[in-house]
């Protein structure tokens, strides 16, 4: 959803009859974030600025609300999201090497996204699959028992699915 297309009355639904303009604009804020994130994959600064103008809500309040919820991101996210587990079990089994390897082959550090937006690399405390350490998650799928060979396979797979 683009900000220009945002229809306040439609988004707020049936309760529109009893709310003031200010309440309506405020009430659809989270809805609007969700729509924007669906469109852009994250909440871009200029779009939030436009949204702030459209809804007459100060930018600082827009950010204050958006940052409260875990579901919203403020940096572009890749098409693929790879999460390397750095929990204790994975750490001792060489998750740092796995991380290094992925960082090297994509030229990004953890927490960053490749310029072509094919991949976001993140780390996580523990995914609870310590028996399979070292573990990474590729989008929703958990991949465990990583050997250098399997890491290479995943890198090729992610690179191939741009």
């Amino acid at each position: 959803m683009k900000v220009e297309e945002l229809d306040i009355a439609e988004k707020i639904g049936n309760v529109k009859d009893i709310l003031t303009e200010v309440q309506k604009k405020r009430g659809i804020l989270i809805h609007a974030f969700q729509g924007i994130q669906k469109e852009y994959n994250y909440l871009p600064e200029d779009v939030l600025k436009a949204l702030s103008k459209k809804l007459d809500i100060p930018l600082v309040e827009v950010y204050s609300t958006a940052t409260f919820y875990k579901h919203f991101y403020f940096k572009p996210r890749g098409k693929n999201i790879v999460c390397v587990c750095t929990g204790t079990a994975c750490h001792v089994r060489g998750s740092d090497k796995v991380l290094e390897k992925i960082e090297e082959s994509f030229g990004i550090k953890e927490g960053e996204t490749t310029p072509d937006l094919s991949l976001t690399l993140e780390t996580v405390g523990c995914v609870g699959c310590c028996g399979l350490a070292p573990v990474i998650t590729v989008n929703e799928e958990v991949v465990g028992d990583l050997s250098p060979k399997r890491v290479n396979e995943i890198i090729t797979r992610v690179k191939g699915s741009k």
Binding site: G13, N14, V15, I30, Y69, K70, H71
Partner: peptide, 11 residues
Amino acid sequence: FTLDIREGAGA
């Protein structure tokens, strides 16, 4: 009586 759905955002 009308019904609307509101989605949360992970809190």
